[in-house]
Structure formats: C-alpha cells, structure tokens
C-alpha cells in the first residue's frame, strides 16, 4: 500500500484559514493528508509546536500565513518567517529533512493556491517517505 503521510498545517485565522475555507466553498479537491490547526496569527506558531508535531510522528509541517505586508496583526508573519529559517536549520541538524517543513503565504482569496500547495507538499513528503523521527523511534523500541 502506498505510504500515506500525515502533515500538520498551522494556518492563521485571517488569511490562510479563510483561504482553506474558500477551497472548500469552491469545492476544489486536494489530498486528504493534511490536518489543520487554527491559530490567530502565523506569529503564534511557537517553534515548540513544530518540533512537537515532528516528535508526535508528523511526516511534514506546513505553516501558512498572510502575504508579507498583509498580516492582520501588521507583522506577525515576519516574526514567523524569522523563526522558520532557524527551524529549518534546527530540524536538519536533528536529522529531519528540511523539505518536511514548509512556510507559505496564502491569502483569503487563494483557495486554489492553498489546494495546490497541499498537493505539492503531499507529493514531496510521499517521495521522502515516513519521517526520520518515526524510523528512529521504531529502531529504539
């Protein structure tokens, strides 16, 4: 059976979550591997949440926020961007492939783009196979 990854997505309430809802109201189909957690702002995405997702066995983590300059809270997405770059380096050092973490800007009107991002990411993660974290845990136990 084909490997079905599980990807956790943190979506900001104002742009990206609304964009994901728009994909729904427009009935745009995408891969079912994504599990969304709503936060008010991408700036709320604490690095701990990303690391926790990986330790819990997520095969990928997607963070979506408002486009630069469009943040509902002015600049939360910039804070998120800075943390993202550090996180990518960090997970790489932990032995997790950096492609498993992705940050994208999705506006409230970009339902189609959200669907495309999800599909793309599912493809990428499928190609990478199950998360390195899971392999380590399985070896150890």
């Amino acid at each position: 059976m084909e490997f079905q990854p599980k990807i956790i997505a943190f979506l900001c309430n104002w742009c990206s979550y609304t964009g994901a809802d728009l994909a729904g109201t427009s009935r745009i189909k995408y891969a079912p591997n994504i599990r969304v957690i709503r936060v008010m702002c991408s700036g709320r995405v604490d690095p701990t949440f990303v690391l926790k997702s990986f330790t819990e066995g997520a095969d990928g983590v997607l963070i979506c926020g408002c486009h630069p300059g469009d943040c509902h809270y002015h600049e939360g997405n910039y804070k998120c961007l800075r943390r993202y770059h550090l996180l990518v380096k960090y997970i790489e050092q932990m032995g997790i492939r950096p492609e498993r973490l992705r940050l994208e800007w999705v506006s409230a009107s970009e339902g189609k783009i959200f669907a495309e991002i999800v599909n793309e990411m599912v493809q990428t993660v499928k190609a990478l196979g199950p998360s390195e974290v899971k392999t380590v845990v399985e070896t150890l136990t």
Binding site: I8, R35, I37, V39, T48, F49, K52, S53, E56, A58
Partner: peptide, 16 residues
C-alpha cells in the same frame, strides 16, 4: 484560548 498547553494537546490529539 490558544495556550501552549491547548495547542500541544491539539497536536497530540491529531497524532495519537
């Protein structure tokens, strides 16, 4: 309403 504890638990809920 979006505390660390609540969100971490939400992640666990998704994965376990």
């Amino acid at each position: 309403h979006f505390t660390d504890r609540q969100l971490i638990n939400q992640i666990e809920g998704l994965m376990r």
